[in-house]
Computed example of a mutant assay.
Amino acid sequence: MLEWLVAWWDGVELWLVQLPYPLQVTLVLAVLLPLAWGLARLIDRGVDRLGAKLTRVSDAEPPVGRRDADRGREEPA
């Protein structure tokens, strides 16, 4: 059923290992760094939102994403 995917992945893997080492490292970093950064950002925002919902402190600081949006507002005196 997924034989085409396995065959495709084997071809990609074979192509990658036949490249010179500096090109392998460059290609892997160009793909993995953005993926890892995006996943870390997604996890961070999820933890911030979950923490904001579960906190008992009413005047707790908002998550980092919300602080950025409120920078233009002045604090009431």
Rank of each mutant, 00 (worst) to 15 (best):
M1T: 05
L2F: 10
E3H: 07
E3T: 08
W4R: 08
W4A: 07
V6N: 05
A7P: 01
A7N: 08
A7T: 11
A7S: 13
W8T: 13
W8R: 15
D10T: 14
D10P: 00
G11N: 08
G11L: 00
V12F: 01
V12A: 09
V12W: 02
V12C: 04
E13H: 07
E13Y: 07
L14R: 15
L14M: 07
L14Q: 14
W15I: 00
W15K: 06
W15F: 11
W15Y: 13
L16K: 04
L16C: 04
V17H: 10
V17N: 08
Q18V: 01
L19S: 02
P20E: 07
P20Q: 05
P20S: 03
P20F: 01
P22Q: 08
P22S: 08
L23K: 03
L23R: 07
L23F: 13
L23W: 10
L23D: 14
Q24G: 05
Q24F: 03
V25Q: 07
T26A: 14
T26Q: 11
L27W: 05
A30S: 14
L32F: 11
L33W: 09
L33Y: 09
L33H: 05
P34T: 06
P34A: 04
P34V: 05
L35S: 08
A36R: 09
W37R: 10
W37F: 11
G38T: 10
L39F: 12
L39D: 08
A40H: 11
A40N: 09
R41V: 09
R41Y: 10
R41L: 14
L42E: 11
L42M: 14
L42P: 00
D44R: 12
R45Y: 12
R45S: 10
G46T: 08
G46W: 07
V47N: 05
V47A: 15
D48V: 02
D48P: 09
D48Q: 15
R49A: 10
R49H: 06
L50A: 14
G51K: 08
G51S: 15
A52N: 09
A52S: 06
K53S: 13
K53E: 15
K53N: 12
L54M: 13
L54G: 10
L54S: 08
T55W: 00
T55Q: 00
R56I: 04
V57N: 12
V57M: 05
D59Y: 02
D59C: 00
A60F: 01
A60E: 07
A60I: 01
E61Q: 11
E61H: 01
E61K: 04
E61F: 00
P62Q: 01
P62C: 02
P62W: 01
P62I: 00
P63W: 00
